[in-house]
């Protein structure tokens, strides 16, 4: 039995209308996305005569998207985003597995304090870190390089990721660890041979989440980078909007492109994504 009660048990009229209701709500829900996608394939002539919302007179799909890559720095921004996001995901996975393992499996004074500190760190406003972190990156010479964003995101996301891994590792059957103890297995071996193979699903969920969080970041891209050769897609798109004020079709195409990686990631790994969000629901 589930709630709300299955619509199959309802009167025939309701049963027939239910899918229609869902489609109507969903259409309204995604209206802005339809609009931007439609505009991304319009011709400039269409826009010139004010045909923003009607059916396009002709389609310019390839030309518009090609223009984004040839006439703007978008390809570079894409590359920058990957250079920042992928290493961050990798480092976060390693650090959070190590820390999560210790927090879940060892009882020591300060364990709870550390746990609280990680949650707190995850929820604080970014602005409280802005001036000192920017200053720090300037001093060590990382400002306006991808390393600044990799370093910052790795550390910030590790807080959330550690909580996530800690909860997952704490749920693993205790007998495994008891047996290892009896055998005299060293903590390194426990981590490598017992924990690592078992946490793979958790790491998959974490990977998609961290990828999305870092890819979508805008604030730190503004604060820690300046040059087009370093800026990720979010900051790049914002710059583009200033340059191509009237070329809405090009901006729309660029906007769709920025959205594609997280959306594709989400559809491929949906189960993991949802599991991650609802399990590690401490994320702000």
């Amino acid at each position: 039995m589930s709630y709300p009660f299955p619509v199959q048990q309802a009167r025939p009229a309701i049963r027939a209308l239910y899918p229609v209701a869902i489609i109507v709500v969903l259409t309204l829900w995604l209206l802005p996305l339809f609009a931007i996608s439609l505009t991304s394939i319009r011709t400039s002539e269409d826009l010139m005569v004010g045909n923003y919302w009607g059916w396009p007179k002709s389609f310019n799909l390839l030309e518009n998207y090609q223009a984004v890559f040839t006439q703007t720095a978008m390809a570079r921004f894409f590359f920058n985003s990957l250079v920042i996001t992928l290493p961050t995901v990798f480092f976060v996975m390693i650090l959070s597995t190590m820390m999560g393992f210790v927090l879940a499996r060892y009882r020591f004074r300060g364990n709870m304090l550390l746990f609280a500190l990680l949650i707190g760190g995850n929820f604080i406003p970014h602005q409280i870190l802005m001036i000192p972190v920017r200053d720090f990156m300037l001093k060590v010479g990382l400002y306006d390089t991808p390393y600044a964003l990799i370093l910052f995101h790795t550390v910030f996301q590790t807080g959330f990721a550690t909580l996530f891994m800690r909860n997952f590792i704490a749920e693993l059957p205790g007998e495994l660890f008891e047996a290892a103890k009896v055998e005299g297995t060293s903590p390194w071996q426990v981590l490598w041979h017992i924990v690592t193979p078992l946490v793979r699903p958790a790491l998959a969920a974490l990977g998609v989440l961290i990828f999305t969080f870092v890819w979508n970041d805008y604030f730190w891209a503004l604060v820690l980078t300046q040059a087009d050769t370093v800026r990720p897609v979010t900051a790049g798109l914002a710059t583009l909007r200033g340059q191509y004020v009237t070329a809405w079709n090009i901006i729309a195409a660029a906007t769709v492109l920025v959205a594609i990686p997280p959306v594709v990631m989400f559809f491929l790994m949906q189960r993991h994504f949802v599991a991650g969000l609802t399990m590690g629901a401490v994320k702000g």
Binding site: L95, I131, P132, F136, F156, G159, T162, P187
Partner: peptide, 28 residues
């Protein structure tokens, strides 16, 4: 080793967390 290993596992993450999150908060 029963305490050294866990301490070593915590160290990198913890040091970075202090450096990038805790200390900057206090500096602000």
């Amino acid at each position: 080793r029963e305490w050294i290993t866990p301490a070593l596992l915590l160290a990198p993450g913890l040091i970075l967390f202090l450096l990038i999150i805790v200390i900057p908060t206090l500096q602000s």
